[in-house]
Amino acid sequence: MPASPLALDEFDHRLPELLQRDSAATLTTLGEAVGLSASAVQRRITRYRRHGLMREIAVLDPALLGTTTLATVLVAMERESAKLHAAFHHRMRAAPEVQQCYSLAGEWDYLVILCTTGVAHCREIADRLFMDEGNIKRYETRMVFDVVKTGLHVPTRAPVKRKR
């Protein structure tokens, strides 16, 4: 069950926007940008972490590794069952090669993004995750040729509509 939304004020909209661009920015720099003291910024960041709004990870550039292969996998389930979907969710979360997994509306039930070390590894992972499962009607794997854009930015509020 998703956590309830965290109440955000104007500072709480601006700080996460800045942190998403550069999480290594100093508390002083962040405070100057939004009009708060460094200690006030630290308290807010601590609150974001405590409530699960923010966590820090290292994001690697796969192009610089030279050994990564990305693939998208569309998945259609055989039967609708909360228990079977929960088992699929657990399997996707447990697989380190699964970068992202989305539940979809329409013909396909899921979109899975795989990051592997090559085509053979991709096939091995797809076979393990999708062929041996039992509740998957079909799946289609599409290799990614070029990455046009990747991002992790999450908007903190809806854009303001401009009057015409």
Results as ranks from 00 to 15, higher is better:
residue 90 H to T: 05
residue 34 V to W: 03
residue 36 L to S: 06
residue 51 H to N: 06
residue 90 H to W: 02
residue 29 T to Q: 14
residue 47 R to P: 10
residue 141 T to A: 08
residue 93 R to I: 10
residue 147 V to E: 00
residue 37 S to Q: 10
residue 18 L to G: 04
residue 161 K to T: 09
residue 123 R to P: 10
residue 133 E to A: 14
residue 78 E to K: 08
residue 160 V to F: 14
residue 83 K to W: 03
residue 53 L to R: 06
residue 51 H to G: 07
residue 96 P to C: 05
residue 97 E to F: 02
residue 66 G to I: 00
residue 73 V to H: 00
residue 42 Q to A: 15
residue 127 D to K: 13
residue 154 V to E: 06
residue 65 L to D: 00
residue 116 T to V: 02
residue 40 A to F: 11
residue 73 V to G: 03
residue 129 L to P: 11
residue 117 T to C: 00
residue 109 D to T: 14
residue 85 H to W: 03
residue 37 S to L: 12
residue 1 M to Y: 01
residue 154 V to L: 08
residue 35 G to H: 05
residue 49 R to C: 14
residue 86 A to V: 05
residue 28 T to A: 13
residue 2 P to K: 13
residue 35 G to L: 07
residue 101 C to W: 09
residue 72 T to H: 02
residue 3 A to Q: 14
residue 107 E to S: 13
residue 123 R to F: 04
residue 39 S to M: 14
residue 154 V to Y: 10
residue 15 L to W: 09
residue 79 R to E: 15
residue 102 Y to Q: 13
residue 135 N to P: 02
residue 119 V to A: 12
residue 144 V to D: 01
residue 70 L to H: 09
residue 107 E to A: 11
residue 131 M to A: 14
residue 164 R to W: 02
residue 72 T to M: 12
residue 3 A to G: 09
residue 132 D to P: 05
residue 53 L to C: 04
residue 30 L to M: 15
residue 79 R to Y: 04
residue 99 Q to C: 02
residue 118 G to Y: 00
residue 127 D to T: 11
residue 13 H to E: 13
residue 152 L to K: 01
residue 55 R to A: 01
residue 95 A to G: 04
residue 143 M to H: 13
residue 138 R to S: 13
residue 60 L to M: 06
residue 83 K to Q: 02
residue 157 R to N: 08
residue 47 R to V: 13
residue 101 C to S: 14
residue 18 L to R: 08
residue 90 H to Q: 15
residue 151 G to L: 14
residue 26 T to C: 08
residue 131 M to D: 09
residue 23 S to A: 15
residue 81 S to K: 11
residue 45 I to P: 08
residue 113 I to Q: 05
residue 78 E to I: 03
residue 14 R to E: 07
residue 12 D to I: 04
residue 56 E to C: 05
residue 131 M to H: 08
residue 63 A to P: 00
residue 69 T to R: 02
residue 30 L to E: 01
residue 32 E to C: 03
residue 52 G to F: 09
residue 74 L to H: 09
residue 61 D to W: 05
residue 156 T to E: 12
residue 133 E to S: 08
residue 131 M to W: 01
residue 104 L to V: 08
residue 99 Q to M: 08
residue 124 E to I: 06
residue 120 A to Q: 07
residue 153 H to S: 12
residue 92 M to C: 04
residue 97 E to H: 05
residue 161 K to E: 10
residue 56 E to R: 12
residue 131 M to F: 11
residue 57 I to P: 01
residue 77 M to L: 15
residue 123 R to I: 09
residue 104 L to Q: 10
residue 142 R to G: 07
residue 42 Q to M: 06
residue 144 V to Q: 01
residue 95 A to I: 00
residue 95 A to T: 03
residue 137 K to S: 07
residue 135 N to Q: 08
residue 68 T to R: 00
residue 83 K to M: 04
residue 119 V to R: 03
residue 153 H to Y: 15
residue 128 R to S: 10
residue 25 A to Q: 12
residue 103 S to L: 15
residue 30 L to V: 07
residue 61 D to A: 07
residue 98 V to H: 13
residue 60 L to G: 02
